[in-house]
Amino acid sequence: MSEEKWEPKIVAFVCNWCTYTGADLAGTSRLKYPTNVKLIRVMCSGGIDPVFILKAFERGADGILVSGCHPNDCHYNAGNFHARRRWEFFDELLKFLGIEEGRLQFSWVSASEGKKFVDVVTKVTNDVKAMGQFKAYKDLNDEFTAKFPEPVLNEKEIIMSEEDAK
């Protein structure tokens, strides 16, 4: 894909009760935002595992948004507090992992904040666009595969495995 045509790939992990519903409201109000963001619904922001984020970056996401209910408004009383603490640490760790600041963003969007959802999504998209494609992991992978190419099975092995299958 050429540089001019590149469009960022952004994933949003959102909670079912506030941000997902807020995004629904953005739709019902016919507000507009960029098409780059795809939502993954979880029940609570407290249930978003940092591994999801890393996996998404590994699989080519250029930016990630995590959003839940406002503090004190969590459907599950305290899930978002756990989330907040976890991201506080995880944000630090990301830099160490070679992911620039700003690629992962956090926000609170309530079910009545359709407009805020649009603003947040637009901001993330613009920020990530300005940063460009997330290549760090892809480059590492390419480098690694160049040095250690995937072993190709030779004919003898293929025959053996076919025999095993029988």
Binding site: V42, M43, C44, G46, G47, I48, D49, P50, H75, Y76, A78, G79, H82, A83, R86
Partner: peptide, 9 residues
Amino acid sequence: QGCGTCTAS
């Protein structure tokens, strides 16, 4: 209640 905070922890 199914929030999943335990799963992430």
